[in-house]
Amino acid sequence: MRSVRHRLGRFLWQHPGAKAGTALSPIVFWIALFIVGPLFVVLFYSFLTSGPFGSIQYNPTLENYQKTFVANDLRTNEPTPNWLYLNIFGRSLALAFVTTLICMLLGYPVAYWIALRGGRYKNLWIALFIMPFWTSYVVRIFAWMFLLRDPSGFINQLLLQSGLIQEPVQLLYNVTGVLIGMVYTYLPFAVIPLYASLERLDRSVLEAASDLGARPWQRLRYVTLPLTRGGIMSACVLTFVPAVGEYLIPDLMGGSKVNMIGNFIADKFLRDQNWTLGSAMSVILILIVMAILIIYLWRGHRHGILEGDF
């Protein structure tokens, strides 16, 4: 026994690479268990056949992928591109993109203010931002629905009674409602990494820029933004990726009238009990989002964005 341990110790001492490997093994194990494992199950299902009543038959097939992209027309029964899936996919990407954009436009000034002007209350401000997470996500969405309803919702009542509007505005069960919900939900995901990168920003670099004649917006453009690009990248990824797969907000705040790909896929699994088709659609969703991420990160890397992360 002792000699085995001794020899193993010597091997690791002589091969630092292998040592790093063993040190990383908890991470590798974690990733395998919680990320690769479930994905593999989805991938496996996507190649199987669905039987009656949602049973699964172990006949390997590519049919689910074919059905993801080609569907029989409801009326003519002719094979056509699966416009429904593609449209909803496009809508999901567009909604996630707009959500990310709004989160950046709202989140950056907030993070900037807290990081640079928050003073000794910085941590309190950030805590306030995270505090909604202490209550259930669903409860918060319901609270928003109570605020947004027309005409009985608080916001409509406030606008009507202050005379700013004559007719109630529809803020729920449309694109506006879904966007409000998504921006609200993902804003903290944007603010936290932005705050972290702004927090780390060397204040004297900002002072130097002003001192060298940069007006506030010039300083923002040439110094602050480039130096917090790492945070911006993280914030975009952390907002965009979960936003694409959002399910609850379109269901509740969109009133099932503005659906996203998450709802479509959930319907395949639950309503249609078609786990194999749902899996194939999930695999395609994951692949496309991954491709977008890789292109984004690769371009960011090429433009020195990652170097900007100090």
């Binding site: 027309d150 009985s152 009133g255 009238k257």
Partner: peptide
């Protein structure tokens, strides 16, 4: 013509007149 496809909140929204 529809405001939404829903079941969860509709009872309350009927009561408020929404």
């Amino acid at each position: 013509l529809l405001q939404a496809y829903t079941s969860g909140t509709v009872r309350d929204q009927l009561a408020t007149g929404d």
